[in-house]
Amino acid sequence: MTETEAGDYAIKINNLNKSFQTFQAVRNLQFTVAKATCFGLLGPNGAGKTTTLKLLYGKAKPDLTPETQIDVFGLDPHKGALGIKSFAGIVPQQDNLDSELNVRDNLRVYAKFYGLSPQETQKQIDNLLSFMELEEKALAKVKELSGGMQRRLTIARALINHPRLLILDEPTTGLDPQVRHLIWNKLRELKNTGVTILLTTHYMEEAFQICDRIIIMDKGEKILEGSPRDLLRANLEKHVLEIPWLRALSNSTETYLQKHQIRYEFFNDTLFAYSNSYESLASFGENLKLGDYYLRNANLEDLFLKVTGRSLNELQ
């Protein structure tokens, strides 16, 4: 990260805290986002991801400590929220389009908020409708659009000002696979043109697909940070064997697991066994006549569950 040390970063956060009455949503958070990269915030519901995003553009106010630093392209949202919002595009978790207006008018109204000229607005609306593959729906009212189309329109809306920074709160939650892949492609395209992207997600696959760097948050705190691949490699075995409906192990099974250095845990009546050796897991599943099993590569989701815990918290 030598380039970020030279001050060539897009976002730098230090000692960020935010509490609501008695509940602390963000705790001593610190991270740096390099320019033209995609940075992901992962964590269960209530981890403080959305609050973190809101703190960046002045939608939420941080608890002030002398060490608190929020730097978004050189601006602090406390004084520079308007500046930040002028060069950023924001996609909130919940679509908040004007349902009475058609697609084009939604974009036109939003372009006015940025003070775009009518000619610029026309041009940019045409570009965005084609970029987000919404041309055929240009005159449809928002309430006639599917969830996926509304999401694409919300993203198009956030791009109206040619943002240098794109902030997306769960961009693909609840969408079907086609739309998710379309959105991922578009985000990659934007990143390649130099746009810095900051997003939150629950989808480990999403993080793997588009994020250069992620942090995993839990209860307002950062637990892990790194590139998705590095994090997996450093924190988890390569393969996982899942055996449902297994509640206890026989002595011989336990001996086998110990002998082959297979780590295991029970959760929801399922055994999860982890190992770097595919063969030892496969023969474990095969030879011990354990019934149905599922042997697969470990993924970010396993890591996520490992570090944030498998049981639900009160906010989920």
């Binding site: 002028s86 040619h162 746009v195």
Partner: peptide, 27 residues
């Protein structure tokens, strides 16, 4: 798609007008 390096902040009267315009369009 490309990003823009110049992102001027709209003047206060443009901002008020844009909010007015939004309500006007919906109405």
């Amino acid at each position: 798609m490309s990003y823009s390096n110049s992102a001027p902040i709209p003047s206060w009267w443009k901002r008020l007008y844009s909010v007015w315009y939004r309500h006007f369009r919906v109405y």
